[in-house]
């Protein structure tokens, strides 16, 4: 990885900027570029890597789960901003993913959130629609890591797609409309 070198730029140094700003203000305005170089940097980096690998090795299953659930929530948040529909982000698919991340079988999740086995099976297979009660239970189950509102928005995207694809219903309902408003040339 090629590294930039800002060292020759005196006006961009901490020493120069600290004449104008307090340290608190500098921390709110800057992260300064790396100062270490050559062997000094290599030695420091070796020490960092050792500690980093130790941190990774000592990560608990709870910490890993939290990271994966947070990732799930953030991906959902990005998905909500898109105009497109993704089957992998459907309520059923996300529920399956939730069970994978939390390492819960259907039977285990049923017991933990108080939902009947057959109902949960139908939910993960997209055979029935989820309700708000289930979304609140999933929120509590994830200790609020994936909020009920996220589950609701995932479901809304499913509904949106269902509406877009339901041309049969659309045509059938259009027939009931005897006349439309007049928008002239604007319509």
């Amino acid at each position: 990885m090629k590294k930039s070198n800002h060292k020759g730029n005196k006006s961009a140094s901490y020493e120069s900027l600290s004449k104008k700003y307090s340290d608190e203000e500098l921390a709110e305005g800057f992260v300064f570029p790396s100062q270490l170089e050559g062997e000094e940097k290599e030695t420091a980096h070796r020490e960092f890597l050792k500690l980093r690998m130790e941190l990774l090795k000592n990560m608990t299953s709870e910490e890993i789960m939290f990271g994966e659930l947070t990732r799930m929530k953030l991906l959902q948040n990005d998905y909500f901003k898109l105009d497109t529909y993704d089957k992998g982000m459907s309520f059923a698919a996300q529920l399956k993913d939730y069970m994978r991340i939390t390492r819960r079988s259907q039977a285990e999740l049923c017991v933990e959130i108080g939902v009947e086995k057959t109902k949960l099976s139908k939910l993960v297979n997209g055979k029935i629609k989820p309700n708000a009660e289930l979304m609140f239970r999933l929120e509590k189950h994830s200790q609020n890591t994936v909020p009920a509102l996220n589950w609701y928005r995932v479901y809304l995207k499913d509904l949106e797609q269902e509406l877009k694809e339901n041309t049969e219903l659309k045509q059938a309902q259009y027939k009931f409309v005897k006349s439309s408003i007049n928008l002239g040339k604007a319509g």
Partner: peptide
């Protein structure tokens, strides 16, 4: 999938502020 792991190399004078303002902790340099 990095569990939110983000690093920065602080100026020594700003260490306390990165800690109190954003929650960063020291790990080597």
């Amino acid at each position: 999938n990095y569990n939110g792991f983000v690093t920065l190399e602080p100026k020594a004078e700003l260490v306390d502020h990165y800690r109190s303002k954003y929650g960063f902790e020291e790990l080597s340099y």
